[in-house]
């Protein structure tokens, strides 16, 4: 069984690389490409992108001592050392046996190394730290780890993605695979590649995580959203990042 998972993992790596090598044949699109020019400009201009307010806050938090250890993130992680980190999460941290996403990783650092309380989901501090870390991977290709232990979690994510849910009996795949590019009311359905997280979503008028976005979709389906700490989100994030492998990170993204 284990061998089978590894074989499957290798196969998907090959397919993804092949798709990238094809260049123009890669039909994947970032949600950025589906936005109007005004919003693209808002994201591109760091002096106008509201997400940059949070990157700046995150940078300040990164250097501020916290917890019983009275250590800051910067005490262990030097300037620029977070480059590439956001491109490979979720991942299984050292000495752990299950994957965490970037927010989970930040909170692990807080509890284990700073000996501080974890930051609340979607709190400004957590999102700002995440934005600051993700910003350092901007322009880098999404590079999920090849860790074979991730395969069953990814498979679980893929299963949730294709599972019909809620009163409307729809799945993620029905909209974002089968009908991407069509109009749901006036809105172009994106392919759901997590290239810009955390994103400044105009509907929220705030920065938010991929989890918050996934919850939006579940609520739209009239399905019961998972709790913020549910492993289902990490599984979905693993699957989505693998699906977007090789696409470039844009954090902090702006989306309608």
């Amino acid at each position: 069984m284990r061998t089978a998972w590894i074989a499957l993992g290798l196969a998907s790596v090959f397919v993804a690389t092949f798709a990238l090598a094809q260049g123009a044949a890669d039909k994947r699109r970032s949600g950025y490409q589906d936005m109007g020019e005004a919003l693209q400009k808002m994201q591109d201009d760091d002096t106008a992108n509201p997400g940059m307010l949070f990157v700046q806050l995150g940078e300040q938090l990164f250097g501020r001592p916290a917890g019983a250890a009275n250590k800051s993130c910067a005490d262990c992680h030097g300037a620029g050392s977070m480059k590439g980190v956001a491109a490979r999460y979720p991942a299984i941290p050292k000495d752990a046996d299950k994957p965490v996403d970037l927010e989970g990783r930040i909170n692990l650092c807080r509890t284990a190394n700073q000996r501080a309380e974890p930051l609340a989901p979607e709190s400004r501090d957590l999102l700002s730290l995440e934005a600051y870390v993700a910003f350092q991977s901007r322009g880098q290709p999404i590079a999920p780890p090849s860790d074979p232990r991730l395969a069953p979690f990814r498979a679980q994510g893929a299963e949730i993605y294709r599972r019909r849910q809620g009163q409307l009996n729809l799945s993620c795949a029905i909209c974002h695979d089968d009908n991407a590019g069509k109009k749901l009311a006036g809105v172009t359905i994106p392919q759901a590649h997590p290239t810009g997280y955390p994103i400044y979503r105009l509907e929220w008028q705030a920065l938010g995580s991929l989890k918050r976005r996934l919850r939006n979709c579940l609520i739209g389906l009239r399905a019961e959203a998972y709790a913020y700490d549910a492993p289902e989100y990490v599984a979905l994030e693993l699957y989505l990042m693998d699906r977007a492998k090789g696409m470039l990170l844009e954090a902090p993204g702006v989306r309608p």
Partner: peptide
């Protein structure tokens, strides 16, 4: 035959 219907909509038709 529906899965994970939100509590608000549980047992209700659209």
């Amino acid at each position: 035959g529906l899965r994970r219907v939100a509590r608000t909509f549980e047992g209700k038709t659209i």
